[in-house]
Nucleic acid binder design. Structure first.
Length: 733
RNA sequence: GCGCGAUUAGCUCAGUUGGUAGAGCAGCGCUUUUACACAGCGAAGGUCGCAGGUUCGAAUCCUGCAUCGCGCACCA
């Protein structure tokens, strides 16, 4: 027995060394596994892509949980003999990364305009590269058995080609178009954002009921009086008898120094019972009003600019910020006696997720993806849509899940998914930021050219905008496997991937968009199963956040208690899709467990070193009972991992190892082990050694470091535990 | 407004074909017995949110309610 077993287990002396051994043997790479006979070219494949962490800094516990779950599954599948691939990568996270760097340079007294586009991007790239290195190191610290030789970045050369190819193809099919619509404008970030990047915040505000001018026949209600200088109509419900006589008429007058022509229109979308039952229509600054305006052929009249300042009116409002203009206009209305009612209401206002800026709806020319336009299906990987059949992106997203080509776990999230798909509107993909994939469109005079590369000839100017970061991450399952080379071996072998494991918070952002992209470009699903994990919260169930100061750094936990303990604490007690709470005490508890395993190794090694493990001796009935019980545990663990119930598998192993194997079986075996009679001693030695070795294998996916370390110190070890055959198949033969 | 989830021991949570409630941590008592004090043994601790229903039997299924949390939504 190695002397190291005489002292408590020290993860800090072990884990980096073990990871280096793994890296050296290169079994994370399935090609090496084939070469070394661990698996074969013909073996069933299992593939999974790592949801690429944003290069905005460091990993948090949520990432650690994700890596733990995925690594357990990957190690399990690899030990089962599958040709297993786990692809690593990082995401450039355009807006998030750019705004992070903007904050940093602001402290240095710089801003991006001063620096210029190229210098600024260079700065962002430097930051991204440093973040990347940190993140990679963290992933390794956690013990991820991921194939680094296939690492990808959403903004590297290969992915850039994939993005431009994807854009061009969707453009040619008419799915990507440029159009003027009301966008979600973030005045703080100076960019558009998609509907999904909006966070609604409840705030108190005042609702004013007033008339535009004295003899205007209808009073309207609004919380944003400053936008009313952009009104072109008042809409009422067609059945509303109060206003029926006015419908069709136009009233003109002056409102806060602006001349308005207000047409009274009847529209089904107006609710009779809300406010006065009449809605002031501001087409340029409200999504719904814009739609009403289009139905009634009314103009869009922009009154607010990109800096959220008024661009019409007299000196009382012109050039003022919207909030100041609101105050002024209310003042004017009061003075002129036009206000009929003021009431406190709470309302949800839209803010930008990344910058916190208050969204200002504005009419702008942007690039969009039409989710309802028909095109010919490129493949037959989605049941219900044949190859060549006309379909839409929305249809693809719907059918992929409805027809079970994709299973979402926990199942309840399917409902959420469908609700999102049903409400989906055109996806705005252009962003007015510098960091990211530049839109592959060039202009010269009235000419527009969309292509993978710049057009030949002089005078072409590329569109200054970049793409929504989710456009490139939507391609992730196949852009990492060699696409757009349709003959790429990895693409052929490993796509669709088997599993997509991620947090439920990015179901729409990312999961749905991968379904869209894979469905369109390949005509198939990007993955078979989606497993959604919960968020990691603190011991009191609060969301971890830097501002509250309740974050727990995975690296700290690894340094103090080891990666194995950290992993277990993120798995056990956390059911699929539900949030988990984490405390340092919990991690410490599992550190004790790894030490327990260490001590079990010491005991079994020292008391069974002379056993012949090659053939099973005749066992007593009690020993057969113990063996049968262990086999039940092994089957339970196997089944629950295969069903993604890692928390149950992990808990069972913990409970069995400690409270059955150690507390009961080892204790009761002491007598037999000390027996002079070899016919009493030997079968018991064999039994203990057998179960112990099998337990090491079963536990390896959960706690890879300590089990590999022990495995390396025993004669039976041979090749690394990570590529040793999983017990259950052999057992059930 | 629509939808989803949670409500189990002091704390954090498991408990998916319905069959006499479980773990970790905290706390109590004992044990330094040659694997382990990062330990062992033992005791204690719960009307499983509330009210009904189905059933021989419900934490588990159904209905309603309450509280908390989350998601979605163009109510001006």
């Amino acid at each position: 027995m190695d002397d190291k077993f005489l002292t408590p287990y020290k993860p800090e002396d072990t884990e980096d060394r073990i990871y280096a051994d793994w890296t050296e043997s290169d079994f994370f790479n399935p090609d090496t596994c084939i070469e070394k006979g661990i698996t074969s070219e013909e073996a069933e494949t299992f593939s999974i892509v790592l949801p690429p962490p944003n290069v905005t800094g460091v990993l948090h516990m949520g990432h650690a949980a994700m890596i733990a779950v995925e690594d357990i599954i990957v190690r399990y599948e690899r030990m089962k003999g599958k040709r297993t691939l786990w692809v690593p990568g990082t995401d450039h996270a355009a807006i998030a990364t750019q705004s992070k760097v903007e904050k940093i340079i602001e402290k240095e007294g710089l801003n991006k305009q001063k620096m210029g586009r190229d210098a600024f991007i260079a700065r962002v790239e430097k930051f991204a590269s440093e973040s990347h290195d940190t993140i990679v190191n963290q992933i390794k610290k956690l013990g991820a058995s991921i194939d680094w030789s296939r690492e990808a970045f959403t903004l590297d050369t290969e992915r850039s080609l994939a993005v431009r190819t994807a854009f061009k193809s969707m453009y040619d099919d008419g799915l990507i178009y440029r159009g003027a619509r009301i966008v979600n404008w973030d005045p703080k970030g100076q960019t558009t954002i998609s509907d999904d990047e909006i966070v609604h915040e409840e705030r108190k505000s005042t609702m004013y009921t007033f008339r535009y001018w004295k003899d205007f026949p209808i009073a309207i209600s609004t919380t944003r009086p400053e936008t009313k200088v952009g009104d072109v109509a008042v809409a009422v419900h067609p059945d509303d008898t109060r206003y029926g006589t006015f419908v069709g008429q136009t009233f003109s007058g002056e409102f806060c120094g602006v001349h308005l022509d207000i047409k009274i229109v009847a529209d089904e979308s107006v609710e009779k019972d809300f406010g006065t039952g009449a809605l002031g229509v501001t087409p340029a600054h409200s999504q719904i009003d814009s739609e009403i305006a289009m139905r009634h052929k009314l103009p869009h009249k922009q009154v607010i600019n990109e800096y959220a300042k008024m661009i019409v009116g007299d000196e009382r409002i012109l050039g003022k910020k919207v909030t100041d203009a609101r105050t002024s206009i209310v003042e004017i209305l009061r003075t002129e006696g036009l206000i009929e009612k003021e009431e406190e209401v709470s309302q949800n206002i839209a803010t930008a997720e990344r910058t916190g800026g208050i969204i200002e709806p504005l009419p702008k020319l942007q690039w969009w993806i039409d989710v309802e336009k028909e095109f010919a299906m490129k493949g037959d990987g989605i049941p219900g849509i044949a190859k060549g059949q006309q379909t839409t992106l929305k249809e693809i997203m719907k059918k992929a899940v409805a027809n079970s080509a994709i299973i979402i776990l926990p199942e309840r999230f399917e409902k959420t998914y469908f609700q999102w798909v049903d409400n989906l509107r055109p996806w705005c993909i252009s962003r007015q930021i510098w960091y990211g994939h530049r839109i592959p469109v060039w202009y010269k005079g009235d000419e527009t050219y969309a292509g993978i590369d710049a057009p030949a000839g002089d005078g072409w100017e590329q569109d200054p905008d970049t793409l929504d970061t989710w456009f490139s991450s939507g391609l992730w399952t196949f852009s990492t496997l060699g696409w757009p080379d349709k003959n790429a071996k990895d693409l052929h072998d490993y796509h669709p991937t088997d599993l997509l494991e991620t947090g439920y918070d990015i179901l729409f952002f990312w999961v749905a968009r991968m379904v869209l992209m894979s469905g369109y470009h390949l005509g198939t699903v990007p993955f078979r199963t989606v497993y959604l994990h919960g968020l990691v919260r603190d011991a009191k169930g609060k969301k971890m956040s830097k501002s509250i100061g309740n974050t727990i750094d995975p690296l700290d936990m690894i340094a103090k208690y080891g990666a194995d303990a950290t992993r277990l604490s993120l798995i056990i007690g956390a059911g699929p899709g539900s949030d988990m709470s984490l405390s340092e005490e919990k991690v410490r508890g599992y550190k004790k467990y790894t030490n327990k395993i260490w001590n079990i190794a010491r005991f079994v090694l020292s008391s069974t070193n002379d056993v012949d493990t090659t053939k099973k001796p005749v066992l007593s009935s009690r020993e057969e009972e113990i063996l049968a019980e262990f086999n039940d545990v092994a089957r339970y663990v196997d089944q629950h991992i295969s069903e993604f119930k890692l928390h149950l598998a992990g808990e069972k192993l913990y409970d069995y190892t400690w409270h059955i194997f150690a507390d009961v079986i080892l204790e009761e075996s002491k007598e037999a082990l000390l027996s002079e009679d070899a016919s009493v001693r030997a079968p018991r030695q064999w039994l203990l050694r057998y179960i112990w070795l099998e337990l090491l294998k079963l536990q390896h996916p959960f706690i890879p470091f300590v089990t590999e370390e022990i495995w390396g110190s025993i004669p039976e070890g041979g090749q690394q535990l990570m590529v040793t055959k999983w017990p259950v198949d052999a057992m059930t033969k």
